[in-house]
């Protein structure tokens, strides 16, 4: 298959050229000195490391060009240790290059493949030993062993069952419910409509009894944002319009794509941007996706005010918040 005509001849390994240090004793001495200087530099590095570790306090900062105001302790131990290690290596390599034998050596390769006799006798041995076991004839044993091995392989999976609970309904529900007040995050202060002027945003959570001990897994579903625009700017269906209050509209803050907090609100364009993957949501149209990988709008939370004039949820979220999952049904 090869089209090889006659190739150019191999001239063989080039003639070995001696180094200066091989022929000139002065050069050899010089190389030796260079190697030991490198090793001494390493020793100096270790001393710097020890000095810095013990005697430079950890709260001292020095100003250095390029680095700025930098911690002196960290810089001292790092530089010391780094140089100590580096120069050991540099010394060893320089030693190998200048003073150790540099004549290239040729070793022969052997094919990986075993010889044909070895292979034949291997096959023979396997056949013979397998024949003694008579696995081929004892199909009952073979099948029952197969079954046993297959089943025992299941046991680790079963053992891992208690890693976590089953999802049940937990992805479908949040803390938000009819009448729950909207409170600021952080701060846990209730909000009235007049606290938000047009162009304002508030990061909020549902009011709970013990705000000091909110569970992170609740926050991961409950986090929401309130945004106020002019009511005339909202382009919503009548039903969704009823979910807003005097131009205040509430959305889940958890991205419908991969769950990052979507919180970059631009009051000029009325866009919400997710900083993780740049999905962009259009607030006036109910957080419709106008750019990026997210496929669904942010879930909208129906809000209204209670008797005391505080903003409350008018209903729980009507769809699961956060990223999609197999059982999600909308």
């Amino acid at each position: 298959m090869s089209t090889e005509l006659e190739p150019l001849a191999d001239p063989g390994l080039p003639h070995h050229v001696h180094r200066k240090a091989d022929t000139d004793p002065a050069a050899e001495k010089r190389a030796e000195r260079q190697v030991s200087i490198l090793f001494l530099l390493s020793a100096a590095g270790t001393l710097l490391f020890i000095y810095s570790f013990i005697w430079i306090p950890t709260d001292v900062f020095v100003f250095l060009p390029l680095l700025g105001n930098t911690n002196a302790h960290q810089l001292g131990i790092g530089t010391g240790l780094g140089l100590a290690l580096f120069f050991i290596g540099a010394g060893a390599v320089h030693w190998a290059k200048t003073l150790m034998p540099d004549e290239e050596v040729i070793a022969q390769r052997h094919e990986m493949r075993s010889s044909d006799e070895d292979r034949a006798s291997f096959v023979e041995t396997v056949k013979e030993e397998a024949g003694k076991v008579q696995l081929g004839r004892r199909s009952l044993i073979k099948r029952s062993l197969g079954l046993a091995l297959g089943l025992v392989g299941l046991s680790p999976l079963i053992l891992l069952r208690d890693l976590g609970p089953l999802p049940e309904q937990s992805l479908l529900k949040t803390t938000w419910d009819k009448g729950i007040r909207v409170v600021t995050d952080p701060g846990n202060r209730p909000l009235r409509p007049e606290d938000l002027e047009v162009g304002a945003i508030a990061h909020v959570l549902p009011e709970i009894k013990d705000p000091e001990h909110r569970k992170l897994s609740d926050i991961a579903k409950d986090a929401a944002i309130l945004i106020r625009v002019r009511p005339s700017e909202l382009k919503l269906s009548e039903e969704r319009m009823a979910w807003t209050h005097e131009g205040i509209i509430a959305f889940s803050k958890i991205c419908s794509h991969m769950g990052c907090p979507v919180a970059l609100y631009e009051q000029t364009t009325k866009h919400l941007l997710c900083p993780c993957h740049q999905s962009t949501f259009d607030v006036p149209t109910g957080a419709k996706v106008i750019f990026g990988p997210a496929a669904r709008p942010l879930p909208q939370l129906a809000i209204t005010v209670d008797d005391e004039g505080y903003l409350i949820a008018a209903a729980p979220f009507d769809e699961p918040v956060g990223p999609s999952f197999w059982e999600r049904n909308i």
């Binding site: 701060g187 202060r189 938000l196 304002a200 945003i201 990061h203 009051q267």
Partner: peptide, 18 residues
């Protein structure tokens, strides 16, 4: 004031002390 694209953070959303 919420200049340019920045939204407004009212005194109830973030109090003056905050």
């Amino acid at each position: 004031t919420g200049p340019q694209a920045m939204p407004v953070f009212g005194d109830q959303a973030i109090t003056p002390e905050e």
